[in-house]
Simulated scan of single mutants.
Amino acid sequence: MTHRAKLPFIAAGLLLATLAGTTLHAQEFDLSPAQAGRVHAQPNPEAIALLSPDFQWAKPDTLTVAVSVGEPPLAAFADDSTTIIGADPDVALLIGEALGKKVELVSVAWADWPLGVVSGKYDAVISNVTVTEERKERLDFSTYRKDVLGWYVKSDSPITQIKEPKDIAGLKVITGAGTNQEKILLEWDRQNVAAGLAPVEVQYYDDSAAAQLAIQSGRADAQFNPNSSLAYASAVNGGTKLVGTLSGGWPVNADIAVTTRKDAGIAAAITAAINGLIKDGTYGEALKRWNLSAESIDVSATNPPGLPRT
């Protein structure tokens, strides 16, 4: 888990624009509870037919989905401080519509969702959960996004591409303490130093606005964190650009998936629903709406290989 922002990204964008004294080309996102621009799906008979008649729904005729609410674009509270909005809620609602069910989104703490799913309190979790071999022992997965980390720099930075360790030699890089991206960054730095290249200066910030300001002021050269939040921030404040992505499971690929209890009889239906949404384009529209097209997948899979045990 990465550190949560203490300021909403829209506020951060306005702060950066003011402090930097520049005109930033910002993209507006709908944070209203109405969500008028949200895309919708039609019932998918093939997916519905895969639902086990023995599946015990948390609530009748309803797909109850747990969401760990943090910040846009994945999941946040709307302007009314009550309605859950974001890319993951949009995916949840599309899947529910494809399965012919109402959808109830429930805000839960990250630490609480595993027990809630296994006990049947929630039918599914759609909250940026990565597939791992350890989790597959108790849970089923239907993939819906790539686990992507992003390299972001100031929009006018001379850095145009980061794709391998030597590209960050000598740079000042912001990342999250105690995260997988920090482990990757430190390993890249270790390889550089072993090869005689300049070391990285690693920087940590608890506040997203402070991290963005460090990039704008030149105190940091790049930020390496989950692509979703950085892509949203880039669109909102216009002051940063994407110069590279990396799988969150580097050196192997990692997938984000809808999570359900093991052998409950619903995973195959959810996978089929997602594949139908991919085919008809509504899935792509939902991710594009939150500037997450870089994390889209071509096909959903049930229980693919997960990150190995550490």
Rank of each mutant, 00 (worst) to 15 (best):
M1Y: 08
T2Q: 14
T2D: 12
K6T: 06
P8K: 15
I10M: 07
G13H: 00
L15E: 13
L19W: 15
T22C: 08
L24R: 06
Q35K: 02
V39F: 01
H40M: 07
Q42M: 13
Q42R: 15
P43N: 03
P43C: 08
P45G: 08
P45L: 04
L50P: 02
L50Q: 01
L51D: 08
L51N: 03
S52W: 12
S52Y: 08
A58P: 01
P60K: 13
L63A: 12
T64M: 03
T64L: 12
V65Q: 09
V69Q: 14
P72M: 11
A78M: 00
D80S: 07
D80I: 10
T82H: 11
T83H: 06
I85K: 02
I85Q: 06
I85S: 05
G86S: 02
L93F: 09
I95S: 05
G96D: 07
E97Y: 12
A98Q: 09
E104F: 04
L105A: 13
S107K: 14
V108W: 12
V108Y: 07
A111G: 12
D112C: 09
L115Y: 14
V117R: 01
K121R: 15
K121G: 14
Y122H: 08
D123F: 13
V125Q: 08
S127H: 07
R135D: 00
K136P: 00
S142Q: 08
Y144D: 05
Y144M: 01
K146N: 15
K146P: 03
K146Q: 15
D147G: 12
D147L: 10
V153R: 05
D156R: 02
P158D: 10
I159S: 05
E164M: 15
P165H: 06
K166Q: 13
D167I: 13
I168L: 15
K172D: 11
T179G: 13
Q181G: 09
E182Y: 06
E182Q: 12
I184Q: 14
L186G: 00
E187C: 01
W188T: 07
A194W: 06
G196Y: 10
A198P: 01
V200W: 10
Q203N: 01
Q203H: 02
Y204H: 04
S208A: 09
A211G: 12
A214Q: 13
I215Y: 06
I215P: 01
Q216T: 13
S217P: 07
S217C: 02
K241D: 00
W250P: 02
I256S: 06
A264E: 10
A269Y: 02
A273F: 11
I274E: 07
G276L: 01
I278A: 12
I278P: 05
E285Y: 03
A286D: 02
A286Y: 08
A294H: 11
E295Q: 08
S296L: 04
I297S: 15
V299S: 12
S300A: 15
T302Y: 02
L307H: 00
T310D: 05
T310R: 02
